[in-house]
Amino acid sequence: MVLLKLFLSFIQIGLFSIGGGYAALPLIQNQVVELHGWLTLSEFADVISIAEMTPGPIAVNSATFVGIQIAGIPGAIVATIGCILPSCVIVLLLAYLYQKYKTMTVMQGALAGIRPAVVSMIASAGLTILLLALFGSSAASLQNVDLKNAGIVLAGLAMSFWLDPNPILIIGGAGVVGLFFYVQGTLSGPARAIVDAAAGALVLLSVVLLAIADRRRRRAS
């Protein structure tokens, strides 16, 4: 019976969370913490931070997490299906309408009107992530700036505008650099000097390789 309850509860979450991401949080909290008592408030806070740290939509993440805590893997599956079922039905219908009517003047006008707004919404989300990466939870000021992350952002920008690789490479590469900074931070003395020198050489080498790749590409085109 708990499976059915999970299912019904996450259907409501899926149905009423419009706008994605954080819009779903109060709903999840209401269902999971207040109505059913499946998680305590502090466990719920943990779910949020884990959902932020891992890929994927926050609603799917919390459905999986809550489902497992309540009823193991079957619970996770049932909760996740419940959570995406409403979108499946509604968005499939919208997809059908979009494909059918997208050449109509009215539909064309509506979509053309929305497009610049969507770019701005993405920009707004991007700025939030950028500030979080540069300043963490502290106030935005020059003293607080995280220089390592600032370097990663600049290097990522240079790479993406210069070579336009798959964004996954940039995100994954940033993770590798983060791991390097962590390892470097734990070292001291000669070991650190060696690691620093090796990293410097690696950066130089990759700049040279990038330049060569860029030249080749230009010659090819």
Partner: peptide, 20 residues
């Protein structure tokens, strides 16, 4: 984990700025 994920966030910021 925190070090890697924090740095990946910086990468995500770069990727989004590019597309915007």
């Amino acid at each position: 984990v925190n070090a890697v994920l924090g740095a990946m966030r910086a990468g995500v910021a770069a990727v989004i700025i590019n597309v915007v």
